Amino acid sequence: MVAAAVPALLVATSGAASADGWITWKNVKSGYYLTANSSGTVKGDWAMPGVNEDDYQWYDQSNGDTSYTEYNGHGMCLVGYYRQVYTENCSKGRDQSNWWQRWYEISTNSGWKLKNRQTGWILDDEGHGGIYANSGDYNNSNQRWK
């Protein structure tokens, strides 16, 4: 009897959609990171290692339905309420039913598109640090994240 050794296939990914791990979201055009402070204000800002890491690190948690919940180091979830984007206390459980707190992470050739499950609106960076959601996908770098 001969035993064949089968090498394990390792797949390395960069960027988001890591499912159940800490990540950062950096806007392709502005270079700003998606941040949220402990009061719930979401904006784009520069990230500096060791400084306010709870503001710009997100735990990317799969909900088991192709959507993800993003919560930051302050334990607050990213919410898309049409044009408004902010953080609030997370609904309980991995498969929580608050679809305003769920995001589809869609890979494109220019970065990740974050689409809110409830509204279908796309996370957008206005380029001055303002973060909002846009009703249309204009396939531009303001709406792409890495």
Rank of each mutant, 00 (worst) to 15 (best):
Y56R: 00
G120W: 05
N116Y: 04
Q96S: 07
T108W: 04
D125T: 01
Y33A: 01
R144Q: 07
G50D: 07
K113C: 15
A19Y: 04
P7A: 00
A36L: 02
Y32M: 12
W99A: 06
T66E: 15
T87V: 06
N27S: 08
T35A: 15
W46Y: 12
I131D: 07
G73Y: 09
S91N: 10
D54F: 04
A47C: 09
V28H: 02
S107P: 11
I23C: 09
Y56N: 06
A4F: 13
G129W: 11
V51D: 12
D137F: 14
G75N: 10
G40A: 05
W22I: 12
V2T: 11
Y81P: 01
D95H: 05
V6N: 12
Y104N: 14
K43D: 11
Q61D: 06
K115S: 08
G93R: 01
A5N: 09
A3W: 10
A3S: 10
N98H: 08
T87N: 04
Q143M: 08
L34C: 04
N109D: 13
S141T: 11
Q84A: 13
S67V: 10
Y59R: 00
D45C: 01
G50Q: 04
S62H: 01
Y71D: 03
W121Q: 03
C90S: 06
G93K: 02
K43F: 09
R94F: 07
I23P: 14
A5V: 11
W22Q: 08
V42R: 09
S30E: 14
A16K: 00
Y59A: 07
A16W: 08
M48C: 02
